[in-house]
């Protein structure tokens, strides 16, 4: 089978990988090929833990608790819940702050680190920025709870300057979008700096030399050469971060647990979906909220896929 596939793909003139549209040969492409063999295990996992759960939550969202088609009633019921709109506002504010910080600061830092001349300085800076990546999830929230407690905090001075004497002053609800954006940036930015740094490394040295010879300074090189060439990776960062941002869950959940009830346990949209499922036993309403989140993510993804040309390999 492998031998056959090989002969087939190497016999014509060397493939032109730049046009991967696949529309080139439609006739006879239904037979299993080497490619199918390579992707088969992944397709199995994709079906089991990607597609089937989604189909199932769509099914739940349009079904009544006792069975039977429910139309959009699960959606309208969950959207009219008094906690629904506030939760969306909270998450939107957090995501907006976080994405702006990511796009501006991560790109800037990746470019600056990439320009450093000393290899050792590069390695040290990269490592320093990346370390917090080890603390995603519950670990980072725990550490953050300490950092935000003025009695033990390493930045107690800053907290007191800004008028926060007690832990409960710091974690008031209107501080939370900024606080969650800071946690997310603190844990995630280093990883993205690494990814963009790696992308900058794939720009051929000749291109960079040519820019230099033409008299382009660091800023012009960045704007006219590096940014366009790593655009795919930047949009990738934005898409993934947006998706991750809308599912805000662990942070408010733990902050709520540790805040003596100041922060409600339905602060984010996902927490609300969780409350629907686990305290109200309303799986259908929960699935409807999940689908709401999904639609938002899909709309944004579509926009970025179209603009960032994610599937064009060149």
């Amino acid at each position: 089978m492998t031998a056959l596939a090989t002969r087939e793909s190497s016999a014509p003139t060397p493939q032109v990988p730049t046009s991967t549209s696949g529309s080139r040969r439609t006739a006879g492409s239904r037979r299993p090929r080497a490619g199918h063999f390579f992707v088969l295990p992944y397709v199995v996992l994709l079906a089991l833990f990607g597609v089937i759960p989604v189909v199932y939550s769509i099914y739940l969202a349009f079904t009544k608790a006792g069975g039977g088609f429910a139309g959009f009633s699960n959606f309208t019921r969950s959207a009219r819940d008094y906690r629904f709109v506030p939760a969306i506002e909270h998450v939107a504010m957090y995501v907006a702050i976080w994405l702006v910080a990511l796009i501006v600061l991560v790109v800037l830092l990746a470019l600056v680190v990439h320009r450093l001349v000393s290899g050792k300085a590069k390695a040290v800076v990269r490592f320093a920025y990346y370390i917090p990546g080890a603390l995603a999830g519950a670990s980072s929230v725990l550490l953050l709870l300490f950092v935000l407690d003025p009695t033990v905090s390493p930045v107690a001075m800053i907290l007191r300057w800004t008028g926060n004497e007690h832990f409960t002053d710091v974690i008031t609800p209107h501080h939370l979008p900024v606080i969650f954006a800071i946690i997310a940036f603190w844990t995630g930015a280093g990883g993205w700096i690494l990814v963009l740094y790696g992308a900058l490394n794939t720009i051929p040295a000749e291109v960079m030399e040519a820019a230099k010879v033409d008299g382009a300074g660091p800023v012009r090189t960045a704007l006219n050469i590096q940014l366009p060439m790593i655009r795919k990776w930047v949009s990738y960062m934005v898409i993934l971060s947006l998706a991750a941002g809308t599912q805000l869950f662990v942070e408010p959940e733990l902050v709520s647990q540790a805040s003596f009830g100041i922060v409600p346990n339905d602060y984010s949209v996902n927490q609300l979906a969780y409350q629907f499922a686990f305290t109200q036993n309303d799986f259908n309403g929960s699935a409807a909220i999940s689908i709401d989140l999904l639609v938002v993510a899909l709309l944004c993804a579509g926009l970025f896929v179209a603009r960032g040309k994610l599937f064009e390999t060149d």
Partner: peptide, 24 residues
Amino acid sequence: MQFAGRRFLLITTLIVMLMPTASL
């Protein structure tokens, strides 16, 4: 590699990747 369903698989991958994992 070229194979039937390649583009469909790519798009499905991106879509699933973008889905909030907590909702799954």
